[in-house]
């Protein structure tokens, strides 16, 4: 069991190596697609940097894969409020991302006040707060406050959306 877990863990880090490889390849391919005539004023051209960066990423991808296969492991970042003794708590992270995505989908149509309220309330819920009413009050106050604060203070009009005319 333990062995399986550790092997799976190793494998998930290979995913990161793959990501590096994909990004590196994309950077190089994109660089190749640039067509620039040689210019005396710019002997380096726009291609050189992508090749350097892409090359760096590919080398890192390969070395990371080798490192992981040999049993190397990146150490997860610790922090004041981080307890690494329990595994990643997806039941917190997934709803949190859900609240975030909901906001992306909604913000342009229903407006910042509503989507922002949902974002804060949903995030607080995902993070374990169960004081629904108090959370909702704080969320509405924050969303409304930032809406008017940005409008009056900074001259930025966040979208009013459904509440157009009300706000």
């Amino acid at each position: 069991m333990n062995q399986l877990v550790s092997r799976l863990k190793g494998r998930s880090e290979l995913g990161l190596a793959a990501l590096l490889g994909v990004v590196g390849a994309a950077v190089i391919l994109d660089g190749l697609s640039l067509s620039v005539p040689y210019s005396q004023a710019d002997p380096v051209g726009p291609k050189t940097m992508p090749f350097i960066v892409g090359g760096l990423l590919l080398v890192c991808a390969v070395l990371l894969a080798v490192n992981v296969l040999r049993g190397g492991q990146g150490e997860a970042e610790s922090g004041e409020d981080v307890d690494l003794s329990h595994p990643t708590d997806w039941r917190t992270v997934v709803p949190l991302i859900g609240a975030f995505v909901l906001n992306i989908v909604l913000v342009d149509t229903v407006g910042w006040v509503i989507s922002g309220t949902l974002l804060f309330w949903g995030s607080a819920w995902a993070l374990g707060s169960r004081r629904y009413l108090r959370d909702a009050i704080i969320a509405v106050v924050l969303a409304l406050g930032t809406f008017y604060g940005f409008y009056l203070g900074l001259g930025i009009s966040l979208p009013a959306g459904l509440l157009q005319g009300v706000l």
Binding site: E77, G79, D81, V82, D83, L84, H86, T88, D89, W90, T92, V93, L96, I97, A126, L127, G128
Partner: peptide, 12 residues
Amino acid sequence: EALWIAAHLRRK
């Protein structure tokens, strides 16, 4: 950072 901490909240 927020997502990372959310995934590993210190409960005690």
